[in-house]
Design a protein around this nucleic acid. Structure first.
Lengths: 375, 375
DNA sequence: CTGAAAGCGCTTACAG
DNA sequence: CTGAAAGCGCTTACAG
């Protein structure tokens, strides 16, 4: 017999109401909630059988299964995930690592997409937000010994070589979503930046723009992204189409800490663009939000969009259609679904048909692009 | 000794690469990841001491603590949450129940706010999306026996009496966020609808509007919300300010399944409003998104906003400032932080200073409200 | 198809 | 301050 004196009160919780009682005395064990053992006793079978019946694994007679199920329902029984996990070695959890905030256009969509497919498969989706380079380092330091999830989805994070090494040695599958490179991931889902930029430049070219530019977002050195990939792709696309380097301008992202506000960064960028000797007549901007902010700033200054300057964004987020922004549309919910499907397969030990998926964006023509007017 | 034959391979996972090896052979146990026992052995202390040292509980000499910490770092050791949880009875997890999708303005903000405070306290935030009334029923059926989290935050869900009863008997704390009523929750955080509507009606009144109306969103009977509270508050506020019932119009939300698209629902509502004999000169709309859609629809039809009809929204979401919408601003991130702080306190067994918080909204005047022009 | 038993990796009184 | 030992609630070979 277990020493009762040593029995701990599990999940003790004092109600804020004054009576201070514990809830529900339905279970004959007294305080608390039914366990598998209670179900077994009530159904007159062994714990093994209850486990098999409830999880649908192994051979159990239909009659037994039904009875066990009934008893379990009556007792409001739910398996303890901690106990199952400890015994089986599977946590039934997938961690999604994002930067900055859960409440961004891309990250919230990523959560939703991954949740849809993982929850159907019985997995929990656990978000992990990494805000600084240190956070990220700490996460990767502990990743190899982490037994708290069965797989990881890493969103929009630029990895260094150490981190790639960690992923390569990892005992659990890792999938990169919006990964800039294949890294050490078992699978990735990402946008085809080269193709996107080619679409954008082609549009500008066919509209007759001779001087074009790419505008990077203000950069945070402590952040983990890099715009260089996209601006590089822009340059390549422009050269392919016959623009020479004098006709291509890159407006680099300044360190964001130099500015008091997002608006200040926008103004500074707009000023740089306008002060340019041979100002471009069309710009591709790294993201919609920055493109929209620039559009407002240009108009405030008295520059017409698109008559004086055409603008193409990237993302097609919530605001873009309202702003009538021409942009490259991507679907982060769908991308996250794909990423989650990859982790699922990998967690089951199945091989990936296409480990690294590269998705096309669609160019959506709206009202911020037009034929250039002579200045 | 343990029978090795019976040792299970835990967390087995076949790499997609062809070599099929398991990762990392750093640990001297061979395959796999360090456990507390490994750390104890390497540090030359007992498992109890490792546990105490790593968690900072109980008396451990500084010297021992430092050594254990070192060894743990070297071994990339992380506690198994499943094992800790099973042993301690605390899951260190909080479930956030939302409806429909994680990717909505309110829900994504709620995740972010709750995450901020819970992750600081060492808790995981686990989302649970409830899409249908059946999903909700199933969740509440199993809630009493659920040992898989230490607390719940329920977002924007209208409870029935059974569900209130379940919450009242629950052994873990439950907090309602954007709750319409106190329900059976241990704590709630919600908007002061009455005050909000009073602010809105006061503005319209002082601008000189004599005929005003409230527009409900299209409703989903399978969904779990109700607009009646807000429209009721509107009516009360209008009466308070001396409007008689003939001057107040309520445009009820039709069943959403009657429409092929959101846009159809918007058109139908706009038509109802315009066809009204004594059309109101100002409208409060249940949410910003619907207000903005109506604004576009009115303008499409040739009705000027605000000259012919003033519009006030509710939420102040991402699109509102761009649409120049006058609206009632609420801050779901801050609300979610408060909700999470309440669960935290309750999980620690501490009483809540203010169990039920009612937050004011701020009326933001933008360009969709004006003095009515004579028709 | 079913049961007895070992084991998963921790935490926590208890006893020094 | 530290260790030995019981126990948390399951799963899963193994043996019928």
């Amino acid at each position: 017999m277990r020493k009762l004196a040593q029995r701990r009160i599990v999940g003790a919780y004092r109600r804020s109401a004054s009576d201070g009682r514990y809830a529900s005395d339905k279970s004959d064990k007294g305080c608390g909630v039914a366990s598998l053992k209670d179900v077994a006793a009530a159904a007159g079978v062994s714990e093994s059988t209850v486990s098999r019946a409830l999880r649908g694994t192994g051979r159990v007679s239909e009659k037994t299964r039904a009875r066990v199920q009934d008893v379990a329902n009556q007792l409001h029984f739910t398996l303890s995930r901690s106990a199952s996990s400890l015994a089986s070695g599977k946590t039934m959890r997938v961690t999604m690592v994002v930067t900055d905030s859960l409440n961004t256009w891309f990250n919230a969509a990523a959560m939703e997409g991954a949740y849809e497919v993982l929850s159907d498969a019985g997995y929990d989706l656990v978000p992990l937000v990494v805000r600084t380079r240190d956070d990220l380092k700490r996460f990767f330091d502990r990743l190899p010994g982490n037994r708290n999830s069965d797989g990881v989805i890493v969103v929009s994070i630029m990895l260094n070589d150490d981190q790639v090494g960690v992923l390569e040695d990892l005992t659990m599958p890792s999938v990169g979503l919006d990964a800039r490179a294949i890294g050490g991931y078992s699978g990735t889902v990402r946008i085809d930046d080269a193709d996107s930029m080619r679409q954008a430049v082609r549009l500008l070219h066919s509209l007759g723009h001779r001087r074009i530019g790419f505008v990077e977002m203000p950069d945070n050195p402590d952040f983990l992204f890099s715009a260089k990939l996209r601006s590089g792709a822009f340059r390549d696309a422009a050269r392919e189409l016959g623009y020479d380097d004098g006709e291509i301008t890159l407006f680099e992202g300044r360190d964001v800490s130099r500015f008091r506000s997002f608006q200040d960064a926008v103004s500074e960028t707009a000023t740089r663009i306008i002060s340019q000797a041979e100002r471009p007549t069309a710009l591709c901007v790294e993201t919609d939000d920055f493109a929209i902010a620039l559009m407002y700033e240009f108009r405030r200054i008295g520059l017409r969009v698109p008559e004086d300057i055409s603008l193409i964004g990237f993302d097609d987020n919530d605001r873009s259609s309202m702003a009538e922004l021409t942009t490259l549309h991507q679907d982060p919910v769908a991308m996250a679904r794909m990423a989650a499907e990859k982790v699922l397969l990998l967690m089951r030990g199945e091989p990936l048909g296409e480990p690294h998926s590269m998705l096309r964006t669609n160019l959506i023509m709206r009202a911020t692009t037009a034929v250039p007017e002579g200045r």
